[in-house]
Design a protein around this nucleic acid. Structure first.
Lengths: 384, 384
DNA sequence: CAACTTACGAAGGAGCGCTTCATTAGTAGC
DNA sequence: GCTACTAATGAAGCGCTCCTTCGTAAGTTG
């Protein structure tokens, strides 16, 4: 009931311009005829739209490709290189950054290790190193970055303040967005890492095309990101997916079954224990397999709650432990099937460790698309 | 990425026609100037649109209202009476039917009691009686009913088959949509009752204006309906909200605390026991209050799961027990607050027993709106 | 009955998209 | 090297939708 705005002639043109840009996004260079067909416009009209988009700087002409019958057609492409996007995954032990063009095609990536208990200053410095490393790799200036999106553990409110983050000490009661805006001169977005991972799997990974998806982050901590109706579900206070806070969901202590398994040799550093157990389970070690079983027994409770509540098409298993998806998927499917009304498909993440950075890039792309494709944001701005 | 359809001039007109209809829906008769202002069109254009809509039969002119300064303005209104909608709540013990105009304004209501263990034939006959009673009350012929929407307990799949319904024996393995289509000559919609209740509260009740809402159905059975992003969330197999199937959510047996309370006099019929306990609790009976406490202790687990997972703006308490919301809300808020990340508002239903029928009507209105307002359904059809 | 207020209706103009058709720049065949 | 063929280009003309403007009509107010 919200938008009661009728249309003007110019609105129609605006709509058609956006449709044209949308048709060009991602696709390679397109001829006028191809564009006309895709947008449903006639060729002369399409030409006019294309001319306008060229004048505004959103689109450029590329040389025609010879070798085909008839007069060679002009080809147009979206100028994905007229700006850049940066995505950053601020993890507990690693900071990953990626640079992409406006289509979200990743051009460079870097990684900076960081101590879990690093101070705020150390963390911010590492972030800055990761980002500038990325920019240096592809000789890009920070001024050409249109948007920078961050993903991080914990609950971040709509203003970018950390509401809760047990895992990262430096994050306590922090105006993260404020700090990052002091460092970076472009618009700064912040989102929870599980939600970004879900978004990445939905755009490019295991969940492509699905409308309702539960992304299950399994690792040192357990979390969830939800795609509902094809869009990331944030929640009113951006605190969705925090079912691990519920003791009855049995997520919080679930990884302990893997950490304390008897198969782990003495002296193994605590952060490697779970990986060891999973590896042992893959080799058939019965003690490890039993530990995995107990882990899944716990994991399935909160998972079944999500599935019963949302009836998703798909559950995607991601996060650190999903490297051992072959060990986890079978038992998880078995136990989930016994508790569900309608069993969803259960798949492993296909993006692995890159999930969150990629999701951050996708989030930045989305932000750009929102600005472009939301009607009544006024006409397209001129760039350059 | 789905719709890449550019626009024609006629598309613009279509858009403006729909905008105009939308502006008239629900509102009383509007003058051209008022319509022009609301739609953003100029008066002459608005006139043309109105003329077209009149010719198609969607809109009619009503006599101008005298008594104001200047030349009296023509007034137009949406012809909500050019068709009718019926909503039906197929409950365990009662079948409620309501008739509304195309705006969803309810014109007549009826109720037919039915045995919980009635046979399928008895149930279908009761449904038919309820509907024809409704039609008779407002002297409407079934041929003038455009859509009939049903709400019922249980999981109904996308084709209208009953997948699961423990409460109503006659529903076992039933092609409900098929049966109902044999009886009623108009399009038949079927939806889960909790989802319809959620929809009604969202449109007309306690949840108006909220984007993400959890509707908590408390009664002989416990259920949930979800509004996400302002729309009802059905799930891939239309099985969302079935968290009561999870033992750890502690919903399934929760009402037993109220049924088996020591304050209930011997010989009370089992279906009245819970109501008795709630009434006693309202009067301060400590034993009853303790039973209510245990009930809420159970209820809050699944509720917290939903709230933590979805972070809704609002939780609406509806269903049979919500008549005693004054007794339930306090304890529920207390316990929920202790378990939540961000505490949502918790309110009682304002529609009470009419929730589901009203929701069914709203569902039918939505169906109509979808047909009207979804672009590229072609031009508006002529009616009458 | 005159003055005022508000809406109506007709006329003229601008923007956008469509169709049509002659023209142009290539490839293919002889 | 010339002609035939193909497919895109560019310009002209048309129709639709919306806009602005202005004289006219139908009420109320004093």
């Amino acid at each position: 009931m919200a938008d009661l705005r009728g249309g003007d002639l110019s609105r129609l043109r605006q709509l058609n311009s956006l449709t044209a840009i949308r048709a060009m996004r991602g696709a390679g260079p397109l001829t006028l005829s191809a564009l006309a067909e895709r947008t449903g416009l006639s060729r002369p009209s399409m030409k006019e739209v294309a001319d306008e988009l060229m004048k505004l700087g959103w689109v450029e002409e590329v040389p025609p490709s010879p070798g085909s019958m008839g007069r060679p057609a002009r080809r147009y492409r979206f100028r994905a290189d007229s700006g850049y996007l940066v995505g950053v995954d601020i993890g507990g032990y690693n900071i990953r950054a990626a640079l992409s063009d406006l289509d979200g095609v990743i051009l460079a990536e870097t990684r900076q290790p960081v101590q879990l208990d690093a101070t705020l200053e150390e963390r911010l410095a590492a972030i800055q190193r990761a980002v500038s490393g990325c920019l240096a790799l592809s000789r890009t200036a920070i001024e050409d970055v249109w948007t920078i999106a961050f993903g991080t553990i914990g609950v971040i409110d709509v203003e970018g303040r950390v509401v809760y983050s047990a895992a990262v000490p430096a994050w306590r009661d922090l105006d993260l967005a404020g700090k990052l805006r002091e460092i970076f001169p472009c618009p700064v977005l912040i989102e929870n890492d599980s939600r970004l991972a879900a978004m990445a799997e939905h755009r490019r990974g295991a969940a492509r095309g699905a409308k309702d998806v539960v992304f299950l982050h399994v690792g040192r901590r357990t979390g969830a990101g939800l795609i509902i109706g094809g869009k990331v579900h944030r929640g009113y206070g951006a605190a969705s997916g925090e079912i691990s806070m519920l003791p009855e969901a049995r997520w919080f202590d679930a990884p302990e079954h893997l950490n304390t398994c008897a198969s782990v040799p003495e002296g193994t550093p605590p952060e490697d224990a779970a990986g060891y157990t999973l590896a042992a389970a893959r080799n058939g070690d019965p003690v490890a397999l039993e530990a995995v079983g107990r882990y899944i027994d716990d994991l399935v409770v909160g998972t079944a709650a999500m599935v019963l509540l949302l009836d998703p098409e798909l559950v995607v298993l991601g996060g650190g432990f999903s490297r051992s998806a072959d060990v986890l998927l079978g038992p998880l499917r078995d136990r989930l099937e016994r508790r569900c009304m309608r069993m969803p498909e259960v798949r492993a993440s296909t993006l692995g460790d890159e999930c969150v950075v990629t999701g951050a890039i996708d989030y930045a792309v989305d932000h750009l698309d929102d600005q472009l494709f939301t009607p009544d944001r006024g006409p397209l701005p001129v760039i350059r």
